[in-house]
């Protein structure tokens, strides 16, 4: 609770996003001053397009973290989804299979964590490994082709903007509405505050937490569909960085890793920070090796701001 900036509940939630927004603006300003080309319309569009998959995954991750959990299996779900979509079976079958697979992964996480009380880190690391294995079994090496419609979607534009950008915006708006406007959203905050108290207060806590894991897997699946469309093939390892990136973006966005406080707006800003930073480092000719190093340092810095009552996971 040390990051409380207001005694007003909704204000406190909104304000948790401020540092990320400020950081994003700062990096953007730095970019604008040092590199003239950075703010060309083309670069911005590219950036948004590139981030659409990470954004989708981060939305799901934010739900899980707000409810007091962690989902490290999202990256594997992204990989599995691209692997399934590249199986070259009937497109509808492929989509259905990908969604069902993701749903089952989410359900497994939910049951393990809620019903069997397995620690979220251990549970989702397990499913991460299992799903990674499944992705490799389906598509040992990158390749294959995805349904033609998907490629058309990735290349399609509306008013000059690529379709994935619209998809991303719609997804962000829907998730904010879900979190900020519905009972379910309020209950996500409630269980993140204290699952026991929420249950005593009339929230079906187990269902809410479980639903977050299922939604997270489905969001990861959407991210995977979007990614498969953009790379037009399957890749069993393509999602490897998504778990870390989505947690990093969520933490950067001011959501407490212990749950109960944060916002979708923050996570959007968190994704923006990661994207702008990667973009800036490219413009400034920093090697990819150093970029990795900086990303790790940023992740450490982001969570160091959230001091808890006791040290721990």
């Amino acid at each position: 609770m040390s990051i409380l900036t207001s005694a007003h509940a909704r204000q406190a939630r909104r304000r948790s996003a401020l540092p990320a927004v400020a950081l994003a603006v700062l990096i953007a300003a730095g970019l604008a001053f040092t590199t003239p080309g950075a703010f060309s319309a083309q670069n911005i569009v590219n950036l948004l397009n590139q981030q659409s998959s990470v954004m989708a995954v981060t939305l799901g991750q934010t739900l899980v973290i707000l409810a007091g959990g962690f989902d490290l299996s999202v990256g594997s779900v992204v990989s599995l989804t691209t692997a399934i979509l590249s199986l070259e079976i009937h497109p509808l079958g492929a989509f259905a299979l990908a969604l069902v697979a993701a749903f089952l992964v989410g359900l497994a996480n939910a049951v393990g964590i809620v019903r069997f009380r397995i620690h979220p880190i251990l549970m989702t690391i397990s499913t991460m490994t299992i799903v990674q294995g499944a992705a490799l079994l389906l598509r040992p090496i990158p390749g294959g082709t995805v349904p033609a419609g998907l490629v058309a979607y990735a290349n399609g534009t509306l008013f000059g903007l690529p379709l994935p950008i619209y998809a991303m915006v719609v997804l962000v708006l829907l998730t904010s509405l879900l979190l900020g406007g519905t009972r379910f959203g309020l209950h996500v905050y409630a269980v993140g505050g204290s699952p026991e108290n929420a249950a005593l207060g009339g929230v079906r806590a187990a269902r809410v937490v479980g639903a977050c894991y299922v939604l997270s897997a489905l969001f990861a699946c959407l991210g995977g569909i979007n990614l498969a469309a953009r790379i037009a093939s399957g890749d069993p390892l393509v999602g490897a960085s998504f778990a870390i990136d989505s947690v990093a973006a969520t933490a950067l966005g001011g959501t407490l890793l212990s749950g109960g406080m944060g916002s979708i707006g923050g996570s959007v800003a968190g994704v923006a920070v990661l994207a702008l930073l990667a973009n800036g480092l490219n413009f400034w000719n920093v090697s990819t090796h150093f970029q990795m190093l900086i990303k790790g340092a940023l992740l450490i810095a982001a969570v160091s701001a959230h001091r808890r009552a006791a040290p721990g996971l």
């Binding site: 962690f70 880190i121 870390i244 947690v247 990093a248 933490a251 890793l257 212990s258 090697s287 990819t288 090796h289 150093f290 970029q291 990795m292 190093l293 900086i294 990303k295 790790g296 340092a297 940023l298 992740l299 450490i300 982001a302 969570v303 160091s304 701001a305 959230h306 001091r307 808890r308 009552a309 006791a310 040290p311 721990g312 996971l313």
Partner: peptide, 27 residues
């Protein structure tokens, strides 16, 4: 230092540290 002194999430700190170290190994 980060986990005990700053009381930051151990999962994320050590994950971040891992990225830094792998990055260093590439460098």
């Amino acid at each position: 230092l980060f986990i005990a002194r700053l009381r930051a999430s151990a999962v994320i700190i050590t994950l971040g540290m891992s990225i830094v170290l792998v990055g260093l190994s590439y460098v």
